[in-house]
């Protein structure tokens, strides 16, 4: 009797006890995951009094739901809310489109073309770049004149220097360099980035945030898509080539349709990153270009203490698009992210 609890009834089935335990764990985990969202939802319908006197768990039983917080955001502060929402959408979509477009083309070429840039030429380039920056920034030399001198120097000496040292980088090195950009913590570069945008007068604009997000996400796109493109057999493209297709046509007809899952997974990932990003937005946007995360954080900064109720509303409207997308694209995400592991 006891034994039968621990033995599967059929091959390929779980033992009843295992099943029970498994479902219990899954149930507990779901509660753990879903409860915060539930709490958010009911908090958004609480009055300040209900929040402060709580904790109350059940609407209509513990407390009387009220639309007070929703009215705050959608009636009194409608323009602020909608502006942040609109900003977030524009910035996240554009930055995602930009980084996926550029990143997947970079990944494709890294997976298909063998690059062999000369190491010494790159170092030489960097040295010239630093030299030029110092000359312009510190010694106030003329911008165009300095640029002309640097470009001329580069081309004149690149060949000569390149011939002396022939150590070359390989695709793996380039890929690692790209990914290493992501290893750098954003906090390290946020001040220089702030100053850069300040000097070109782009602070608090959509463009500044779009550029920043696109660049920050580029390594992820390249990394994910590189693995994905690598998993597409080269035979397919070679065959298309022999059949007369141009490189663009091969990409459009063969590679693109086959990388749909990878592209959608990457797109979603990058979009969520951009949608949730806080640190750069905090520095770069002040009012006009403010995004939703900033709006949410602002609820914590007033003289009236933390506005839990309106904060909940803001968070809810912020996570709705992500949840909807994730539900629809879930199939692609798991497939796309697993592609490196499972080849089929």
């Amino acid at each position: 009797m006891i034994r039968s609890l621990f033995e599967p009834r059929k091959i390929g089935e779980m033992a009843p006890a295992t099943k029970l335990l498994l479902y219990f764990i899954l149930f507990a985990w779901s509660l753990f995951v879903i409860f915060p969202i539930y709490w958010l939802l009911i908090t958004s319908f609480k009055t300040p009094a209900a929040v402060n006197e709580g904790p109350f768990f059940l609407p209509w039983v513990d407390f009387k739901p009220s639309l007070h917080a929703w009215k705050d955001l959608f009636v009194y502060d409608l323009s602020d809310t909608m502006r942040a929402y609109f900003n977030s959408i524009v910035i996240a979509l554009t930055a995602t489109a930009l980084s996926v477009f550029v990143g997947s083309l970079a990944a494709y070429s890294l997976s298909r073309i063998e690059f062999a840039p000369n190491l010494i030429t790159i170092l030489y380039f960097v040295v010239l770049l630093i030299g030029a920056s110092v000359a312009i920034g510190v010694y106030k030399t003329d911008l165009w004149l300095t640029l002309a001198v640097v470009v001329a120097l580069f081309f004149l000496l690149a060949r000569a220097v390149g011939r002396l040292y022939t150590a070359r980088l390989k695709n793996g090195d380039i890929l690692f360099w790209i990914i290493s950009q992501r290893i750098l913590a954003p906090i390290v570069v946020v001040v220089p980035i702030y100053m850069m945008f300040q000097s070109v007068k782009l602070l608090d604009t959509h463009i500044a945030l779009i550029i920043t997000y696109a660049v920050v996400n580029l390594p992820i796109v390249v990394w994910l898509m590189f693995d994905f493109f690598n998993s597409i057999p080269r035979d397919l493209e070679e065959s298309a080539q022999l059949d007369g297709a141009t490189m663009i046509m091969t990409f459009r007809e063969i590679v693109l349709p086959l990388s749909r899952t990878g592209l959608s997974a990457t797109t979603l990932l990058v979009m969520i990153f951009s949608w949730n990003e806080y640190l750069f937005a905090l520095f770069i946007s002040t009012s006009k270009a403010q995004t939703l995360p900033i709006l949410v954080a602002a609820m914590n900064a007033g003289e009236r203490g933390i506005l839990w109720w309106t904060m909940s509303v803001a968070i809810i409207i912020m996570i709705i698009p992500v949840v909807v997308m994730a539900v629809f694209l879930q199939k692609y995400i798991s497939k796309g992210l697993l592609v490196g592991a499972v080849k089929g």
């Binding site: 057999p233 035979d235 397919l236 070679e238 065959s239 007809e253 086959l258």
Partner: peptide
């Protein structure tokens, strides 16, 4: 091709 290289 050995793999046939059919477009899936």
């Amino acid at each position: 091709f050995q793999s046939y290289a059919l477009y899936p």
